[in-house]
Amino acid sequence: MKRNLVLQTDFGISDGAVSAMYGVANTVDPEIRIFDLTHDIPQYNIWEGSYRLYQTVNYWPEGTVFVSVVDPGVGTSRLSIVVRTAANQYIVTPDNGTLTHIKQDIGIVEARIIDENVNRLPNSGESYTFHGRDVYAYTGARLAANVISFEEVGPKVGVDNIIELTRPKAYLEGEVVFGNIDILDIRFGNLWTNIGRELFIESGVEYGDSLEVTIENNTHQVYKNIMTYGRSFADSHLGEPLLYVNSLDNLGVAINQGSFAKAYHIETGANWKITIRKISRLISN
């Protein structure tokens, strides 16, 4: 049975790059089912590529093949690999940190280096700037169509050697929770943190509690205010901030029908820190 092929890139769709990847995959086997994860990863943003895989992979059937191309090091000595996850999915990607979240949160059981003597688009010449088409889409399609087995991708490489990006961990001190702004819910401007729901609950909070939220960029305070922890956006008034649990079971920060990120110029990454402490419940007349 053929597997699904899911594509993710930072190419955008304003030119023919993604279409070329589709064409290569269809040339391998026109019956392959091809889907887009996203092609709107910010250019060269390996961290976001890693996170979007983590956000998506578990919701696809076992055996699905993902091709992720966010590759600022294309043409360099960085490896091109295919991994098999603990959930028996396959990811075709440069080994540049794109697998950070998958490795740490889902697990990788085996990795193989793509043998370009076998798994490279025929007649693709001496181009070393479009591996997304010539190597990754081609290899991913061959794997999805069962033209090659996982073992035929190429030689094994140690899972421990797969490159990981720096990824801070959330933690609890007393009743205060410390974390980072991992990513944005881009369409709506909500902040998605690395604070898991279970860790947050350990601090003793309950729905309806008021909490002081502080956001810093390095040591510069960007935001400080009191907001409510709610089940949904209905637990706040229009334009009010709130804390909620997002679709990945992590804590989110939002403005009801507004963009928190735009309102306060919040970005993401290891330098963007969030602190949450419980205060006495606010009572309004």
Rank of each mutant, 00 (worst) to 15 (best):
L5C: 03
L7S: 01
Q8S: 03
D10V: 01
I13A: 13
D15R: 09
V18F: 00
A20C: 15
M21K: 03
Y22H: 11
G23E: 03
N26R: 11
I32N: 02
I32S: 00
R33N: 12
F35D: 07
L37Y: 05
Y44A: 10
W47V: 14
W47G: 01
W47R: 13
E48M: 13
Y51E: 12
Q55S: 10
T56K: 05
V57G: 02
N58H: 13
Y59N: 04
W60Y: 14
P61E: 10
P61G: 01
E62G: 13
G63S: 06
V65Y: 03
S68E: 13
V70L: 03
V70G: 06
P72W: 11
T76M: 10
R78P: 01
V82Y: 00
V83C: 02
V83D: 01
A86D: 06
A87P: 04
A87M: 09
V92F: 00
D95Q: 06
G97L: 02
T98L: 05
L99C: 01
L99Q: 00
T100Y: 09
H101R: 14
K103S: 08
K103W: 05
I108D: 03
A111Y: 02
R112T: 00
R112C: 04
I114E: 02
N123R: 10
S124L: 15
E126M: 07
S127V: 13
Y128K: 06
F130Y: 05
V135G: 00
Y138S: 14
L143P: 00
N146I: 08
N146R: 01
E151F: 07
E152M: 06
V157C: 05
N161W: 15
N161K: 12
I163G: 04
I163C: 10
E164D: 02
R167W: 02
A170W: 04
Y171T: 09
L172I: 08
E173K: 04
E173S: 14
E175G: 14
V176G: 04
N180P: 10
I181F: 05
D182G: 12
L184H: 07
I186N: 03
R187P: 12
N190T: 12
Y207T: 12
G208F: 13
S210Y: 08
L211D: 09
E212Q: 06
E212P: 15
N217A: 07
T219A: 07
K224P: 05
I226P: 09
T228W: 07
T228S: 12
Y229N: 12
R231S: 13
S232H: 05
S232L: 15
H237G: 15
G239T: 07
E240K: 10
P241R: 11
P241H: 12
L242A: 14
Y244D: 10
Y244V: 15
D249P: 02
L251I: 04
A254C: 15
N256C: 11
G258Y: 10
G258A: 08
F260K: 11
A261G: 09
H265N: 08
E267A: 11
T268L: 13
G269I: 05
A270K: 09
W272Y: 04
I274N: 02
T275P: 14
T275W: 11
I276N: 02
K278G: 00
I279S: 04
I283L: 15
I283Y: 13
S284T: 08
N285W: 12
